[in-house]
Computed example of a mutant assay.
Amino acid sequence: MKTVYRAFFADSGCSLITIVSNRVEKHSLSQTDQDELRPSKLWTAKIKHCVNVVEASQANRLVATDTNGRHFGLCSKTGDILWQSASIGEGDPGLIVKYQSKLSWSQEVFVFATWSGVLQRLDPTSGKEIEKPTDFLSQFRGLQLTSDPQRLFVTCLVPAKSDSDPVGETLNLLDLKTNKIREVVSNTFSRGINVSPTGRKALFVYLADGASGLISDRSERWEIKDIETGSTLCERTFAPKEFFSPNAVWSPNGQFVATSNKVGHLVFSADTLETVVSVEGQQAERPVFHPSGTHICLCRANDTKIVPMHMLKT
């Protein structure tokens, strides 16, 4: 594969969905004798300004979202666009959850939150609203799954402490049944929160001041915290001007955290935040782990590859 902006594994890891320019593409995957996963393109769907795609496996749909919060329901087998929603506003990636709604029992639901705090629920099969959008007072960032399909983690923005500080963030639980929000880790004021697959730990990213005290010399400080107690399990401060937090992802078993920066991809130990491996690459984008954790897709310009994890370890 050449340049890939975003990717994720579908069909229980048997397929790869990629966003390339203004196209969504699906690839089947075959395993070679060298344990590599080799992609073969199945179809292409043209969607302008597409930024995210999620899979509704029960409905046989892929739900793609553009920069204006317009959603497109694609047939997973053919790539045909079967429905399109109205624009609701920019937001982070939506999620597919199974929960008991007012109209149905244990159905798949596409849940999307705009940055302005509007929560949307759509039927991924038809694109129809399951419930009317709910307007919250908080500004929302990334929705993340929990072990309870009735609840989601959501990051809420809070005002900056001073003119020189960034807007802060807090980690909260959103009850989809009652539409109530409860803060679970207080006073974090981070600039990025990423929950582990188990839901017990989270990566919190902060801005760290350099020796000069100048904003231009700031870097990132990463802390992995226990969500229940709020205690810090490990932390690391990176070199000045080293920024890559928006692209951080956990491995399925919670053993690693992978990300990208201006020179390539990095994989860290989730126990110590020490660098496990660094892979150079131009215009590196968010990596994605295979559901089994055995492989990782390194999205980058001209040379996107799916690499076995055992070949990366040093």
Rank of each mutant, 00 (worst) to 15 (best):
S245I: 00
A208E: 10
T304L: 09
I306C: 08
F238G: 07
R221P: 11
L214R: 14
D271C: 13
K241S: 11
A202D: 05
P252D: 02
R218M: 13
L214Y: 14
D303P: 00
A248I: 00
Q283D: 09
R286Y: 00
H295E: 02
L207F: 14
S245C: 04
S292W: 01
F268K: 08
D303M: 09
L266Q: 06
V249Y: 02
E228G: 15
G210Y: 03
G254I: 03
Q255C: 10
G213H: 12
T229I: 04
Q283L: 07
S196T: 09
L266T: 07
T272Q: 07
A270P: 02
C299W: 02
V263A: 11
F256A: 03
T275P: 14
L273Q: 08
A258Y: 07
E274N: 11
K241L: 08
R200E: 14
S196I: 10
I224R: 06
E242P: 00
C234A: 09
Q282R: 09
E242C: 06
S245E: 00
D303S: 10
C234G: 08
F238S: 09
V307W: 04
S196E: 06
G199V: 12
C299P: 02
T272L: 06
R286N: 00
T229K: 11
K262R: 06
A301Y: 07
M309H: 04
A208H: 12
V277K: 08
H265Q: 01
A284G: 02
F268W: 14
P240G: 09
C234Y: 07
A284C: 03
S260A: 13
C299Q: 02
C234K: 06
S292V: 04
A248L: 02
F268H: 11
D209N: 15
K262T: 10
V307P: 11
H310M: 07
I296E: 00
F268R: 09
L298H: 01
